[in-house]
Design a binder for these strands. Structure first.
Lengths: 255, 255
DNA sequence: CGAGCCGTTGATAGTCATCAAAATGAGTGG
DNA sequence: CCACTCATTTTGATGACTATCAACGGCTCG
């Protein structure tokens, strides 16, 4: 609405969504110097242990946060979608405690770390918006701890699917059907399972009519049932309004 | 150092530790109106789904963050130690996405949510310190996702023990030996295991000489080996200096 | 059309959960 | 001070869920 096609539009929208910003604030964000980069799948946005010099905002495509254990097992910790500032997590910390990698191809805008820091100090409203958006990220991570710690394989996977769908929807990114842009191995790494077990669970969900798939396109014929299977409630996403997702199955919405 | 026995001293120290604050900033924090409350074990500081009106700072004693699944399983998401602001997570969000309960008896200082919000807006340096401290909390949560997602029972438990010990030490709270103020059931809920399995693993660690215990007092006779068993590296805690913990066993420190 | 990644399937093994019950220790009241 | 109660810890036996190992099929791409 402000400027039609600025690369940071979605990011800014996400911020204002967390806290009202006045025109000066908005302008300050949009005037940040930036560099656009095109990324291939698997490319690193941040390396674990590295010293990030800039903060990448995801314009297009998907990415994920990741850590590797001493034994070499990988755990995916978060999924990043367009509009996410990938590096708020590292902005004030001097050494990256986790890595971020592209899931698909896409484009990112690099902001200078110091520019962003200055912005936060100069404009408290932006600082507050950034705090809030990192707090929502924290909330999602808490849910992931629960997901991996206390739910079985089927619930975990259904939960991840629901979360991804709702987050996309909330940013106006869902194209009707959902594409899950990950391999089963990556899905295994986000749920703390093995690829083969993910495969079996996915087939189970399909057999039960909770999902349909063709390649990596996934549809949710019974959204309500999928939510139940995943013990999913969108409360922890702290979304503003209750957009109806995938309506049309007489799903009586529960608060 | 500033004022000898202000209840918020430890909290303030924690903040300055993340970012230098000038005297006005410090004074602003210490002048916050507050109410001291004594808490019993199990008492709620925040209820999941509730609307927090104030932000509690833990003065004394321990607490934990927690969520409950639809099936009634509990997952502990974080441990809070004296000096932690229990509610920064909820300060800018209008509905608590998780509960916080006292682990032991202790005392908390309640700050008014709006006071804290005003403070952040009025004093960007404090805002930055708060951001940083929530980012460290996020980092710890990321490690917990990894812990629960990709480590086996023995590693998980050893890791939690190490983390707790190092965090206490870093705030000058360790009394030489460590007391782990949780029941095995609570430890099970933090590691995503069952109480009986926790018991067995604990006995295993003891049999292997990695810990000794009498009631809930736990000692680490071989700190180095315990770290290895837990795949623990303090990097993710973002502590400033490399204090030596439990030295005296010729443990050649690795970076 | 071969190479290679990804997905699929089967067989087997392990880790951890579940169920049940006894042992220990702390707190309480007579 | 001792019996009593209750939470917590401990132990054993069994079973479920998920990992592991191995091999094959399908799709995409140069």
């Amino acid at each position: 609405m402000i400027s039609q096609n600025h690369p940071l539009d979605r990011f800014l929208w996400e911020l204002t969504f967390h806290r009202p910003l006045d025109d000066d604030d908005r302008k300050a964000v949009l005037d940040l110097p930036l560099r656009i980069r095109r990324m291939d799948p698997g490319a690193y946005l941040v390396r674990e242990g590295g010293v990030p010099a800039n903060c990448a905002v995801l314009i297009d495509g998907y990415a994920f946060r990741q850590k590797v254990t001493g034994e070499g097992a990988r755990q995916i910790i978060a999924l990043c979608i367009p509009g996410d500032a990938v590096d708020l997590q590292n902005m004030f910390l001097n050494i990256a405690d986790h890595g971020v990698q592209m899931l698909t191809s896409g484009t990112v805008a690099d902001l200078k770390r110091s520019d962003l820091q200055d912005l936060v100090l100069a404009r408290p409203a932006i600082g507050a918006a950034i705090i809030k958006s990192t707090l929502v990220e924290s909330s999602i991570m808490r849910e992931w701890v629960v997901n991996v710690g206390r739910r079985d394989a089927r619930e975990r996977i259904a939960h991840v699917l629901c979360e991804f769908a709702v987050r996309l929807e909330s940013r106006g990114l869902s194209t009707g059907g959902f594409e899950l842009p990950m391999t089963q191995e990556q899905l295994a790494d986000t749920t703390g399972l093995t690829p083969v077990h993910v495969n079996r669970v996915l087939k189970g969900l399909e057999a039960d009519g909770l999902i349909t798939r063709q390649r990596r396109q996934i549809q949710f014929p019974d959204w309500r049932a999928l939510q139940d299977a995943g013990d999913f409630s969108r409360q922890y996403l702290h979304l503003p309004s209750e957009d109806i997702l995938h309506d049309g199955h007489g799903s009586a919405a529960a608060p």
